[in-house]
Nucleic acid binder design. Structure first.
Lengths: 190, 190, 190, 190
DNA sequence: CATGAATGAGATTTCATTCAT
DNA sequence: AATGAATGAAATCTCATTCAT
């Protein structure tokens, strides 16, 4: 009955389970007991490894934010569409991690941290697509807003058309909207 | 010494306070005690009036979903922009009620209810703007996604450019994107 | 099975029980569960009434510090001997409350508070007995130290002779020591 | 990378650290983890070496009770004053070990053990100073009480005058009180 | 022998909620 | 109809301690 004594493996299992549970039920709706129980270890272990419930949450959510986009600027829109909207996020129980983060904001500090992360990771780079328009930043945010909205409607609200759409169904619309927002054509896949 | 014995007034005060608190701290972050305390009544009253904490939440959030848009079809985009993005939502402590709802989803049933509400109130009508395109519903959802994303970025994430933008700053972008999505020009204000 | 609903009575029972338990087992050795259980109420009630475990402790211990000595200066030594040494402290399970307090110091702040209380309640007044000697304060502390030591040896350590001594057995020694410390005779009971 | 493998050295370090921590924070306020951590070893080692937390405590506290006073009877009062009151107890973080012991009494057995230790080490011998008075034992306890009280007031409560007094400031008072208690002059130094 | 992964019990505290008055 | 005393469940977290490695 006693678990295999493999720290790293146990840690990873806890993180994976935490991701799913936090995604499904939100921060407050998930208890450390739940997570530990699902993995089959004692809740105390969670505190040993992650210090606190929040520590577990942060580490679980941070896991997949790292990966930077490494594509040429022109392909960012399509890349973001793929990443922010058409991932299946099965690790997060089909829930969009940004929404999980959004749902789990519990203080202004956390809100600020989330904003800074989103800006740094997604928005700032987009501004370059607007050339030297005076409202570059705004345009970037307009586009990011669309991505975010699409992600939410598709994965959280599960609106009928978006829920069953595939990425290629959106490709023409993507190009049209990107051109409308950035004021110049953004080439699609050649 | 005892409170004004005006049942209806107390109910309304409880709802108004609940709206603010739920918006600020989320469902789990708000306690019945907080709400009752802020109004100056006994928590037990909340249960007499609303049955349960969830009952209070539902009634508080439902209060302002009613108001239907009563404008000609062509003005829906602008109307929605005003309603979903550029409201100040002071009743909700500056927080977008859709986000409050989103943050408070605690079960699949609640998710379904939220979806149906959003579709009925905002999306279905938009589809008519797409004329007889075969992906009318999708286009409507694409546009709704943008609105939603804008609202979230502006009021919840508080992204810099959007946070200080005024509705008129977005008007040209609104027209461009609407045309891109619906495939035909949507006239701006006269 | 449900308790009589008398707030004040319940409060007093909790305080009385808390006094005994804290005295017997010290602050850390006593759990809120224990106290509430002994009174037959739910632990949550303790928090409702006293805010925290510390709140319960403080109120329980403060209960009997108030009573000020209202005797002429010359009778202070005998009075203190009665109060600090020859009380039976049955409310505190036979334990000297100062020792309970001493045992329960958990931080420097608490130490400081205890010192100030002891000085204000017992020591400062004693200084007047030393007339205008330049080390009045020191003499007062020397005498207070004796009282304290007697109380501890009698009630906490339960040293054989002191444990079974009566106040009158100490009276001659009290007079001798008081005179030795304050440099002048302190009249006994006439 | 692994610690110096000197069992005895590690034991001593653990004991020294334990003394300080127990003195500073009390028995309950000190965790095995703290002690082991401060020494840089694994907590499990503490259990190997000392069996239990209580075992560590007992051994740490017993360490310095041994040293017997090896002076002529007449010099005991002054000797005790030096030992019980004017030690700096730096090993115990400035805290009087008797108080540490007092604070850490957790059961009646422990209380009994402490009493026997105190009597054997300090009180019994003092009785001889009272000559053949019929209340020799009581007088010895009265004097010991004073020492104890002084120690507590000086090191635990940190009463102002005592906290900054030096041993020589107390010498005349010591002689006066000793004479008052034992009924005969006790010669001072030299 | 020593390590450290893992445990189980228990502590304080907070909440939604019920029920006697 | 309204109050507030009381409850029971659950949550986070800490500790002493054990046991496989």
């Amino acid at each position: 009955m006693t678990r295999k004594r493999d720290r790293e493996q146990t840690r990873q299992e806890l993180l994976a389970t935490a991701r799913r549970q936090f995604a499904r039920a939100g921060y407050d709706g998930t208890s450390v007991r739940d997570v530990a129980g699902a993995v089959g270890v004692d809740p105390a272990l969670v505190f040993r490894y992650f210090g606190s419930k929040r520590g577990l949450f942060d580490e679980a959510m941070a896991a997949h934010t790292d990966a930077m986009i490494d594509a040429p600027l022109e392909q960012w829109p399509r890349e973001l569409l793929g990443r922010l909207v058409f991932q299946d996020w099965e690790e997060y129980d089909g829930e969009h991690p940004l929404i999980v983060a959004l749902r789990s904001i519990g203080s202004d500090d956390e809100r600020d941290r989330l904003r800074d992360e989103i800006c740094a990771a997604h928005i700032d780079k987009l501004a370059d697509l607007a050339g030297d328009a005076k409202d570059k930043q705004l345009r970037a945010e307009l586009f990011a807003a669309w991505m975010l909205g699409l992600g939410i409607l598709r994965s959280a609200v599960r609106t009928p058309a978006l829920a069953k759409a595939e990425q290629q169904d959106l490709q023409p619309h993507l190009e049209a909207v990107a051109e409308a927002i950035f004021g110049r054509p953004i080439p699609g896949p050649e």
